[in-house]
Nucleic acid binder design. Structure first.
Lengths: 251, 251
DNA sequence: TGTTGTGAACCATTTCACAGCC
DNA sequence: GGCTGTGAAATGGTTCACAACA
């Protein structure tokens, strides 16, 4: 969902399909759980079940990374955890700033899973002078005036926008101007960014509307007499990696 | 079970592609903004720009809904707003419950865009007895014990899960048992649900990891020639080839 | 034997390009 | 002349099915 032309045409063998990239975090999470239970190896079938995908897809996904499995046996859990982490760039530290410390921004700052995987909240930024200095999740909020300096001092390349929609584009422009090249946008707006900058968006309202669409169709289904089909609707939204079937996961 | 011969006859005529459905909310938002500015008509080019897609895609998307445009002129804004709203099921009221009123759940409850389009927060539910009765966003929190009753009394078919990961599956099971057929999951877990139940997930950590992947790639771009780590690397070595820092994540 | 890795078939989505209509 | 609506081509992603191999 990057905007416009992102990075490079040089379609090297190094090119991992976007759909695969989007599933790697899912595999990683399932693998981490296995690792914590000291499970040494896992088959594609088991891991796929834990990640909620089918095994053929998982094997194909892994084949883009290399041949990390052992035929007749499966995959070494620790080894895969490391390889996927490395592929995702999680073996390095990613300082992140959150801009807009309202309800949502504060919730994000407090979100634990944030820090756990190489991401570190380097700074919180808000436009309200009254918030300046107040600690949220143990981190003092800084004023928007210092945005550029904060970005540069901390070497931030990933920014999270949790401002109201009206402020989002302006904040985005400043982040990009200061050197941020990846943005996670929670504001309900389409952001416009130059080439080379990635934007991903998270939008509650859109997700609900998509659910409503399917919900409405389910309701109308009983009355639609012509279809003999339908023991199951095309559930499951093949948009990203889907949340669908199985299982597990502690903490 | 998902593995059985699932030869499902494709749902024809009424079948709007999932990718199109996922973009309708985007179009709707852009159209609503135009409507508020009293713009009477838009071309596919203009609307596409506002929604952040290209115009061919937009026209193709609209063609699945019907022929709502006028050649040589464009689309009537009000008319399209209505058609898309109807298609998405937003002309009816959708009572929603939020389960798990922590930082995130409270932020969601306070989120304005929620109520704006047919979605109404019918109840807030939390497992902590100490929260019971306390108002969040003007709505009193109710205890999990009453979950089933709340769902039924309010005719809720959409549930939002904002609990810790460990509680999510159990909450999900109870929601589904009580009649919920669409779930928006904020907990970092793969939920298992029966056929006919839709799950969409929103996962901050996954989004960041996807960004990190691209970010890493950008960084490696200038200094090309990344060495290929491949099958020649001995397995069972959770250590990188060279001095790479192997970060195996903690909880 | 059991399970991976992968061509090849299949399916979905995007993009192109232009005919059709205002 | 301008803009929509849509076949057809191109691209991207998923699933099948089986050979390779520890």
């Amino acid at each position: 969902m990057a905007t416009g032309r992102t990075h490079r045409p040089a379609t090297r063998s190094r090119g991992i399909p976007e759909a695969t990239v989007a599933r790697l975090p899912l595999y990683l999470r399932a693998l981490t759980a296995l690792s914590e239970r000291s499970v040494p190896t896992v088959s594609s079938e088991e891991l796929a079940a834990a990640a909620g995908v089918n095994s053929a897809k998982l094997r194909k996904d892994f084949s883009y990374l290399g041949s990390y499995g052992t035929r007749g046996v499966g995959y070494d859990v620790e080894y895969l955890v490391y390889q996927i982490s490395r592929e995702l760039g999680l073996t390095q530290d990613w300082p992140v700033v959150i801009v807009g410390i309202g309800n949502l921004g504060a919730a994000l700052a407090n979100y634990g899973g944030f820090a756990s995987r190489g991401f570190r909240v380097a700074a919180l930024i808000d436009a309200d002078p009254a918030m300046a200095g107040k600690p949220v999740a143990g981190i003092p909020v800084q004023h928007t005036d210092d945005l550029e300096k904060i970005i540069k001092d901390n070497g931030v390349s990933i920014g999270v926008i949790a401002t109201p929609a009206g402020a989002a584009q302006q904040v985005c422009d400043r982040l990009v101007g200061a050197g941020v090249t990846s943005i996670l946008n929670f504001a309900p707006t389409v952001l416009s960014v130059p080439d080379g900058v990635d934007v991903r968006k998270v939008d509650l309202s859109i997700e609900l509307q998509i659910l409503a669409f399917h919900e409405q169709r389910k309701a109308g289904e009983e009355t639609a007499g012509e279809e003999a089909v339908t023991a199951s609707v095309p559930k499951n939204t093949p948009k990203g990696p889907d949340g669908d079937v199985p299982v597990v996961m502690p903490a």
